[in-house]
Computed example of a mutant assay.
Amino acid sequence: MLASLEARPADPLLSLISLFEADPRTDKIDLGVGVYRDATGQTPVMAAVKAAETMLFELQDSKSYLGPEGDVSFVNAMAKLAFGNISVGKSYTGLQTPGGTGALRLLLELWQRANPDGKVWLGTPSWPVHETMIRSVGAKIQTYVHYDTTAQSACPDNLLAAIRSAKSGDLFLLHGCCHNPSGADPDASLWLLIAEALLNVGAIPLVDLAYQGLGNGLDEDATGLRILLDHLPELLLAYSCDKNFGLYRDRVGAAYVVSRQLGLLEVAQGHLSEIARSCWSMPPDHGAAVARLIMTEPTLTASWRQELNQMTKRIQSIRDRLAEFGDIGKFAFGRLRNEKGMFALLPATPDEVVRLRNENGIFMAGSGRINLAGLQEADCDRLVQAIGRLPSFAHKRTS
């Protein structure tokens, strides 16, 4: 059996992790993996998470199955965090998933069942798992450029043109706050134009929201989602708690369907449960129970919000520090101050990325995407100097 299988290419990000771990240099810098790191370079367990885990250890009296829907109180708590007050005449159904990735898989398959002839529209650059997952459910995919890496600018006209050329029932996979690899988020006025365009053609948004609270604040970061919620009859949401709760290895997420046709939500829930049953049967309990306790115990909520705010400030401090360098050749460091979240895109070629790794011990994705939270302030000078020495970057500095 195995002899008939063709070798698969190694996952670039997993390969990058292995390369970093194998590098003996003590001053190496990991800007590849998208996890938050504090000022010491560690990914800490949040104080509220530790406290919630202690409560579970002392009070939890069963390890029985949750059921395909998972922890319902967790699902409802995350819905309130993301949606705020749900729009009049709308409701939602949802279930717990193994991370935001599990939610994406469920929602894509649900959409595919309802729209077998439709297309999924994906803006590039995106995350490799997005295209892989769309193709894995057998959906047709159509890409468009939503961010010009060379010009280092968003392309809102491309996004709106793509929506206007779509057909009713087509799906648009949209990045929530801080989520696309560039860090260039739409503002409220653009989200409104997106909502109006989707409404006019009858296309459906699937929002991938994995960094709420790591941009401008919990409510502020949900602005785009809530604008879509206010204007559209249907919406799909894949939510992840991995980043804003620091529950990476516990894989905590939820999938939601929002609709004005309230009677159809029960049908949607049945399909979601059926798809989940065929994938992982029952979701894991621990991480979702932790997040649920944090959201329902006021003292834990306050502690979590405070620590999340500190994380956000640290990320912004790195952005501000790099922005002080102005422009280094073709890279406008100054723009980092106005973008959001953990990520930014360098206009570096794959060969230049390899050179940064080999000559300077600076590890990043081949696309030039960097995780700013992996950078310490003391390393900012070294990063900028290394970038300035790349062949296609001029040495002239402007500010």
Rank of each mutant, 00 (worst) to 15 (best):
E131R: 12
L159G: 09
Q152R: 05
L95N: 03
L159Q: 10
Q152I: 05
L193F: 05
W121N: 10
A210S: 13
A162Y: 02
T124F: 03
L160A: 08
M133P: 00
V129K: 04
Q112I: 04
T97C: 06
T150D: 14
E131S: 13
D117W: 02
G94L: 01
Y144L: 13
C178I: 04
A151N: 13
D170K: 09
H130L: 15
V137S: 09
L174N: 06
L107T: 06
I194G: 00
C178Y: 04
P205M: 06
A161G: 15
D208H: 12
T101W: 03
M133C: 06
H146L: 12
I134C: 11
S182Y: 01
S165W: 00
G213M: 03
Q96N: 11
V137P: 09
L214M: 13
T149Q: 14
K119H: 14
L104M: 14
Y144V: 05
Q112K: 15
G138R: 01
L108E: 11
I194D: 00
N200G: 11
D148V: 07
L107P: 05
G94P: 04
S153C: 13
A162N: 05
P116M: 12
V145M: 09
A162T: 11
H179I: 02
Y92R: 01
D157T: 08
D185I: 01
Y211G: 02
L190T: 05
R113K: 14
L199D: 05
H175I: 00
